[in-house]
Write a protein that binds this DNA or RNA. Structure first.
Lengths: 356, 356
DNA sequence: GGCCACTGTGGGAGCGCTCCCACAGCGGCC
DNA sequence: GGCCGCTGTGGGAGCGCTCCCACAGTGGCC
């Protein structure tokens, strides 16, 4: 590692001789070239206002000339800021997500981070062992903040984050008492909108397929269903509620039971698109036409919704916007530590197609 | 250059302010507790064999007692290894992918990395500016290796990686002369299988919808189509080739044209599921029954394939396995630098449903 | 005996940065 | 004149680690 030799070849190095091993310039070299001290260069880089214009100029052109990029490790070592945040995804969830969910969240987060020089670390947790490793990891303060995509009420991760006092933002919430910052869609509102649409369409016996009720999302959607009925003066009938789990198979199963219990139902609000897709298959197999005999609405407006037959009416949530917002909240929380937690609810919207 | 937000260099909290779970123990403290020198502790941590069992034992129990976790930044500073790899995804691709593609790749990569202490950095590149930033980023040697999900022949990123001599692995390849390491599915074989299936089924005029031909994937699938025809002694008829772009709209458009040109076609091999879904809609609108009048096969076996009406026969590629393999190759390339590049082709498989 | 090689060990040096203290220079005020 | 404060600056110290050199101890060989 003899980097003693002054490197005569700046960024202008031969066109062929690409910058292979060429040592990266250090802050010290920038200082020397600019004719100032290390401190001043550091101040310029970190945007301190206490620098004369002249010095700033000199430093900036030295930086440009050398192609200087600060060494992250060195900075982290002294500041113990890592300038990186982790997106933590329990892998079990991955399977559940309406398909573009995951990439849309990432896309939003990444878009928001693009202007920053924060790095995005992706951590999938697939089992207990990895969960423990993650705890150790987080405890070792290796990230400045955490985005957690998780919604189960008994998930231990949020509490861990809470107790470690690491800035964090959840996608979704555990309950309406959630103490951590979170961003979520207006699930209740979306469900309510969907059910009102069914009622307005003339449905009189509207059923619902729910997600697993240990998730707040599922509860909220069920709540919206109930609310819409009540607002319309209809009774809430438990016989019309099919407990399922967001999956296609679960949807099929629950739909079959529902159909047996209430053969006269004429509308179904499903808490996920894939459940709705499963339900539509079951309905067709039972000889019901969609939407003529039974109208169906899904939730997520995922790619599946556009491809069922008939195309599915569904509640859209602004997933990418959720990602963006999560990132923004997290950055805020990191810079102004100790500030109150923030919670954001984003509007949902009903995308009407042919199934209802 | 200094695109960092101004960070007032005043209040930094100082030691103790942030020190949550009390300061992390350092290697020095471990050494003291174990009654050995720093060097020995370092050797134990890094698995050097030149340590006596006695010392090793002492160090290990000291580590356990203190809950010591090495400081990554300090290590990186001196070794200039970052112990992290980047997964680079041009965001435009994101939209193209058969839906679970992205998360499956990630899932595979992450699974392979779980046993390592490599970190996974996710970098989406959405425009020219970000592309340039990425170049700067990579040039600054901030990752040990790069996984690149990109397949366009004119993508400048692979060449950049090549010239920077950063270990890298591509998902897919630019051409069959690809010099970088890559992992891809047997696209030609899958296409061939699909077309043979159509022929065996009795189709006599088999058309195809292609992807954009500046991608090797698209070419390979077209090649497989052609090969299957030739093997069966059928002529390759350009009139039966619909140039499209992997998207649903593109599929619809190309299918319509194809139908006009060759109203007698009785089978279509589509180079992506969503194109196949679009094609099926067009066929139905034109009064053709699937599969009775026209048999249809897609590619990807994505979630869409399971939800079309009728459910779609499709070629499955082992995406998660691709992710795993990519990660494995990259780790190899990082540890044994300078080794020959490796290229892996994974088998595809035909998932037969009702559309063919 | 002397010499060698080889193992295991301690600890100095130094990676590239930020933090902070000291201090020069320059007014403005008493 | 002396004193203040305020701005801009240089550079020492030190973050926690790895690398490497020096060296003690142990045996084997001539």
């Amino acid at each position: 590692m003899s980097q003693t030799a002054p490197r005569p070849d700046g960024p202008h190095g031969g066109p062929g001789a690409v910058g292979r091993g060429s040592a990266r310039p250090t802050l010290e070299e920038v200082a020397a070239l600019a004719g100032v001290g290390r401190g001043t260069v550091s101040r310029v880089i970190n945007g301190s206002p206490r620098v004369s214009d002249k010095a700033r100029q000199a430093v900036q052109s030295a930086i440009a000339e050398l192609g200087y990029v600060p060494n992250r490790a060195a900075r982290t070592l002294v500041t113990s800021r890592t300038d990186s945040i982790a997106l933590v995804v329990p892998e079990a969830e991955t399977r559940l997500f309406s398909e573009p969910y995951f990439s849309d969240i990432i896309s939003g987060v990444s878009a928001e981070l693009a202007e920053t020089d924060m790095q995005l670390l992706l951590i999938l947790v697939r089992n207990q062992r990895e969960r423990e490793r993650l705890s150790a990891y987080l405890t070792a303060q290796r990230v400045d903040g955490v985005l957690l995509v998780s919604v189960h009420q008994d998930d231990p991760l949020p509490s861990l984050l809470e107790s470690l006092e690491i800035p964090s933002v959840l996608a979704g919430r555990r309950s309406d008492l959630e103490p951590l910052s979170y961003v979520h869609a207006d699930n209740a509102g979306g469900a309510r909108m969907a059910v009102r649409h069914l009622l307005r369409r003339g449905c009189t016996r509207v059923a619902t397929l729910t997600g697993p009720l240990d998730m707040e999302v599922a509860q909220a959607r069920l709540g919206g269903y109930r609310r819409a009925l009540e607002e319309a003066g209809r009774p809430y009938d438990e016989g019309l509620v099919g407990l399922a789990d967001f999956t296609e198979d679960g949807g099929r199963l629950a739909m079959r039971e529902l159909l047996e219990r209430r053969p006269d139902l004429d509308g179904v609000f499903c808490a996920s698109d894939v459940m709705a897709a499963g339900a539509m298959q079951v309905l067709r197999a039972a000889g019901r036409r969609v939407p003529d005999d039974v109208a169906v609405i899904g939730f997520d407006d995922s790619i599946v919704a556009r491809h069922t037959d008939p195309p599915m009416t569904s509640v859209r949530q602004p997933i990418e916007e959720m990602g963006r917002t999560m990132a923004r909240l997290l950055l805020d929380e990191i810079t102004e530590r100790g500030r109150a937690r923030r919670q954001v609810v984003l509007a949902t919207e009903l995308v009407v197609r042919e199934s209802a």
